[in-house]
Amino acid sequence: MKQGIFEIISNGPLTENVFKMALCGDTSAITGPGQFVNIKLDGLYLRRPISVCDLEGDILTLIYKVVGKGTEQMSKMKSGGLDILSGLGNGYDMSAAGENPLLIGGGVGVPPLYLLAKRLRAAGKSVAVVMGFNTSSEIFYEDEFKALGCDVTVTTVDGSYGIKGFVTSALPEKYSYVYTCGPEPMLKAVYGAIKTSGQFSFEERMGCGFGACMGCSCETVTGYKRICRDGPVLMKEEIKWRT
C-alpha cells in the first residue's frame, strides 16, 4: 500500500455511463491484476475504490461506471492531481491459470480482467474471454481484448449484440481455469456453471479499503475475510454465498 498524488492524463466516456481515466504516478505498490486503488475526492468523506484496469510503467488506467456522487465527480475531471491509495487488495493469482484460462466479466467487472489478460498473454497462455453486458450500447473493450490476442465472446441480455443471454450461456467447452469479476448474481451463476476451480472478485461497500475497519468483511469457508484486504479475489472453494 502506498499513498500518493496521481496526475490525470486523460478522462472520457467509453459508453454513456462508463468512463476511462488514465493517470500518472508512483505505481510501485501495485503488485498485479485484480487489485484496486482508493481515491479521495473533494467534499466526499470516504474514498472511492476502483479496480485497476491497466498498468504500464507509471501509467495507471481505471474504468469506472457513474453510479453516484463520487464517480459523477470523477467523470467531470479533465486534469489535476488525485490523492490515491494504491496497491490495495490481493489480486488474481496467475500461477493457477493452466494453459487456456477462461476470463468471465460482467459490466464494470470487465476492467480488472484486462490487465490479467495482458499478463496471461505475455506468459504465453491461450486466453478465452466472455464479456456480458445488458445491451449493445453498454459494450466496451471488446477490441482491446481482441488486440491482446484473446478469443473474445460477447453476450447481451437483450440480444442486441453477440450471443443473447447471460455469460453462462456462452461458456466454451474446454478451459483450464476460471477468473471472474462482475455483479454478485453473475458470480453466483458462474460458480454453478464452471467445471474447473477459479478465482472470483467481489465488490462491497468499504470504509478504509486497507483492512483496518472491518467494514467489508464476509464469511468464507476458511473464516472471516475482509474483501478489501484478504480479497477482493476469493478462491471458488472458499466462497460462502449469502442467502
Binding site: 472491518m214 467494514g215 467489508c216 449469502r242
Partner: peptide
C-alpha cells in the same frame, strides 16, 4: 463475525 453487510 459482527453484523451482515453493508456495514458502512
Amino acid at each position: 463475525f459482527g453484523n451482515p453487510g453493508p456495514r458502512i
